[in-house]
Amino acid sequence: MHLSRDVVLLLTHSGDFFTIDRVAEALARKGAQPFRLDTDKFPLEVQLTAHLDKSKTYHTIEYKNYSISTQQVQAVWTRRIWEPKLSQELAPKFREACVRESKATLDGFWDSLKEADWVDDLERISYANNKLRQLRIASEVGFVIPQTLVTNKAQAAREFFLQVNGKMVSKLLTTLSYSMEANSSFFLYTSTVREEDLQDAESLRYCPMVFQEQISKQQELRVAYVNGNVFVGALNADMYAAAKVDWRKPGVEVGAWQHHQLPDKVVLRLQAFMGRLGLLFGSLDLILTPSGEYVFLEINPVGEWGMLEKDLDLPISSAIADALLPTNH
């Protein structure tokens, strides 16, 4: 089957659900043709061809009996790009090379979509993923940010612990590892640091960590930002145990997501922040303190928002579809 209508390419993975379906449905309602590409299914199930010569270039994608030319693609949604998944029968000594070559092929292939509208552009996502840059820019646009130390120096960590009066949390800049076989990440959640932990701080020499002052919480906010619009879900901090410093952990009972209206000045800050990063979409985490201050924690340029749409009926997928269709921005 060959698609003839204008296509919006949805870059995701084979385990994705709900959010990908909602965006595809919203695009179809608006007259576009969504094409889901599960990036982890390349090279075993997705077939790519790229023809280049001095007169023209021609690229095709074939997946699940559908075939498109990248010339048909008007927009691309970067939901998630996963690593190529290879079968067990492949000789182990060639696996790494096959994965590396497949990733390089995918990276090269995206160049054929340079004329499309991206939500968001891969280079901008990479730029925005720098968490130290996030904190700097957030501060520059007027957000309060937690006092933060990133270091591999034990003495600096101990001094910072005293500076924040012993109320300190730790986290990493990245997920720990990625398993292609299980398609899972090993994840270290935000953890409270005790004084006795720092007796072992010399081991920071093997790997740095992020340390931040622990911010008092009235509410935790997840903000889905789409092309200037904000969709906010709030969790009441008193609904879960104080020891659980990270609401995302399994087993943490967080209560119900609630609607939350951000003050205009905070929305303006978010718009300025996203403008500096050049992003149309982002999932941001903020803390509302007991004194009513909004503290910026971080942004994930490809973060989650499905729970906000499902539980609060926030029209996020429709907003993403609007952002993908070029007449809307």
């Binding site: 093997y206 960590m209 952990k249 399994p250 729970m307």
Partner: peptide, 25 residues
């Protein structure tokens, strides 16, 4: 805390469920 990095102590404090894919339809 085999030589391990500083973050290993926090990873060890997590449950396996926490460490190993948030509708949590």
């Amino acid at each position: 805390t085999e030589i391990v990095p500083f973050f290993a102590r926090f990873l060890a404090a997590q449950t396996t469920e926490e460490t190993e894919p948030w509708f949590k339809l």
